[in-house]
Structures are given as structure tokens and as C-alpha cells.
Amino acid sequence: MTGGGQLPIASNADIVMVRQRVRTAAVESGFSLIDQTKVVTAASELARNALVYAGGGQVSIEIIDNTPRRGLRLEFRDEGPGIPDIAQALTDGWTTGGGLGLGLSGSRRLVDEFDLVSVPGEGTTVTVTKWAR
């Protein structure tokens, strides 16, 4: 496994940087254009969630090279208020903000592996993996 880096998420400019770095890592991993778009979209949604709901956080981008399989693992971490009801938060249309309520559930559909751990009052970690086809 090689590192794609760790980035802060503290502003809209950081979300743009996350999108750029994830796209670069997806290209390096041999992702199709469709899979690049899926993983970048998921990364953008998860980074925005960290910024909007937790006041910021960080993401680590890891290129996985398990020959012959290649992929990306992204881990978003924050120290925000946490998610009290994960099942509800993963329901399409449920939101605590003014959005469409598709951020977490939509991100989950765009990747191959999705793991969410949240402790109210301590923060949230979302780890997603997308494999090149």
C-alpha cells in the first residue's frame, strides 16, 4: 500500500483539494472515468459532511495495491458531535441540515466498502474503499 497523503478539511478550498487528490489517486490506480467520478463524488460528500456537521476534520488517502487488485481507501475523521442514530443517518432523505439527505447513503452506494463509526460527543470516522475494475 502506498500513501496518497493526509489532508485537513477546514474550508471549502480544502474540499476542492480533497477532490483533486482523490481524482489523481484514482487515475494512478487505473480507475475508469466512471469509477473516478464515483469515488471523487463520495469523497466530496464525506468531506463536506465533516466540514458542515463537525466543523472540519481530516482525510487520509491510501492507494491499495493488492496485486492484481488495486484500489483506494479513504478515511474521514472528525471530532464533531457524532451521529446518535447511524441507521437513521444512512436513510435516504434524512437530514439534519438543509440538503437532500443523500450524502451518507449516496456515498455508501458509490463505493465498494463503507464503514461508519461514530460516538456522540467524540466524533465520527467514515472509511470507504473503491476497487478499480
Rank of each mutant, 00 (worst) to 15 (best):
L72M: 03
N66Q: 15
L46P: 07
I63W: 08
A42D: 00
R77T: 13
L74N: 07
I61M: 07
G55A: 00
L51N: 10
S44C: 08
R73C: 00
N66F: 04
A54P: 03
G56N: 06
A50M: 08
R77Y: 03
Y53G: 00
G55C: 07
G55L: 04
S44G: 15
G71D: 03
E62N: 08
A47K: 05
I64M: 10
R77N: 11
Y53S: 06
T67P: 02
E45C: 04
Y53V: 05
S44W: 05
L72G: 04
N49M: 09
G57P: 10
Q58D: 12
A50Q: 11
R73Y: 02
I63A: 14
A43H: 03
I64C: 06
E62Q: 14
V52N: 10
T41A: 11
L74Y: 11
G71R: 07
A54L: 01
G56F: 01
R77F: 10
F76L: 06
R69L: 09
P68C: 14
L72T: 01
R70Y: 09
R73W: 01
F76I: 04
V52R: 12
V52Q: 00
E45S: 09
F76P: 00
A50Y: 03
I64L: 14
G56Q: 12
R77W: 00
G55D: 06
R77G: 03
S60T: 15
N49G: 12
